[in-house]
Computed example of a mutant assay.
Amino acid sequence: MHAVYVEQADPTDPLAALRIGERPDPTVPEGWARVKVEAAAINHHDVWSLRGVGLPADRMPMILGTDASGLAEDGRPVIVHSVISTPGWIGDETYDPKRSLLSELHQGTQAEYVTVPASNLVARPAFLSPEEAACLPTAWLTAYRMLTHDSGLSGPGTVLVQGASGGVASAAIALGKALGHRVWATARTEAKREFALEQGADAAYETGSRLPERVDAVIETVGEATWSHSLKSLRPGGTVVVCGATSGPNPSADLNRVFFLQLRVIGSTMGTRQELGELIELLGRTGLRPRVDRVLPLDAARDGYAAVLEGEMLGKVVLRP
């Protein structure tokens, strides 16, 4: 089958590690299901895989991709929940210390077919296109959990989203408004600030700008480049929720500010199948839909990855086998 994969990582030039070609059709273990992929989104996780972060050489070749929508073998439209917990795990699967995402231990979604545990299939409602549905399991689910489970907000508040054009960040803007918050965003360019406003942000500021007032929570996906600004933007007792570090993972901790203002620093990774169901219900109730920047065939995946690497997209990049 045709697929996008990595067979040898390149830490300095991830695009050089990208391969597009034929891979073996997947086998279907007992309790698993095969899905004919209709759409698969590109995430920063895939870029890290190309660099070899979290994906050792002995697991390669590895098909990339953590999320997808498609058709089950009985023809049902489904969305793939990509958090794979260990057999027998009970409870929140994101807390399973041995959990993995598709494309870490098991082959990923950027291919004609993918196999997953049957319990990881979620019905795709008719109101979502395959491309929209493919945006949900990683970026949109992560943003939903950050805003609900992790933000510390029990009612409407003011939320700052750093780096407005990325997949998680743009989802957080739209979802934050749908959940009743006042949402501010930062971005490097005027075009990206305009995009944040289109997504529903109440205001958009240049990266690092002084804000009119301090906020209740910060959605942080950028890392070193925005970390100091995130901490300085929080009110006493506020929360910064961090799910990624695209600009670098080792910012100055500024612990004096953290303990003196009693700030909460919460790590967040993906979400549960139940939360994915809640997210789908929210989209159905509000009419909110993921913003798809572009849809490309698998053979043009390199162009999509280049856009993600350069930050030259507004919303999600989606591949169609």
Rank of each mutant, 00 (worst) to 15 (best):
Val122Cys: 05
Ile219Lys: 06
Ala57Pro: 02
Ser230Cys: 12
Arg145His: 09
Arg34His: 00
Val47Thr: 12
Leu141Ala: 12
Ser100Gln: 01
Asp67Gln: 08
His44Val: 10
Val35Gly: 02
Met62Pro: 14
Met270Gln: 00
Asn250Arg: 13
Pro77Ser: 07
Ala225His: 05
Val222Ile: 13
Gly163Trp: 14
Ile219Ala: 05
Met62Thr: 12
Leu55Arg: 01
Val265His: 07
His106Cys: 07
Gly91Ser: 03
Val215Met: 03
Arg264Ile: 06
Asp303Gln: 14
Asn256Glu: 05
Gly208Lys: 09
Met270Glu: 00
His149Ser: 10
Thr109Ile: 13
Ile173Gly: 14
Ser154Lys: 07
Arg302Tyr: 00
Ala204Asn: 13
Ala133Ser: 06
Lys177Gln: 11
Leu147Lys: 09
Val28Phe: 00
Val161Ser: 15
Gly311Tyr: 14
Gly88Met: 11
Arg291Ala: 09
Thr86Ser: 14
Val47Met: 11
Thr226Cys: 09
Leu309Ser: 08
Val168Tyr: 08
Gln262Glu: 09
Lys192Cys: 06
Glu7Cys: 01
Gly238Cys: 00
Ala301Phe: 09
Met313Pro: 01
Thr94Tyr: 00
Leu141His: 12
Ser165Ala: 15
Val265Pro: 05
Leu234Glu: 03
Val28Glu: 02
Trp48Thr: 08
Gly271Ala: 04
Val28Gly: 02
Thr27His: 07
Leu283Tyr: 12
Ala171Val: 05
Arg51Leu: 04
Arg34Met: 12
Val28His: 02
Ile266Gln: 15
Ala118Leu: 03
His45Arg: 14
Glu132Leu: 11
Ser252Glu: 15
Gly248Ser: 06
Glu213Asn: 02
Gly167Glu: 13
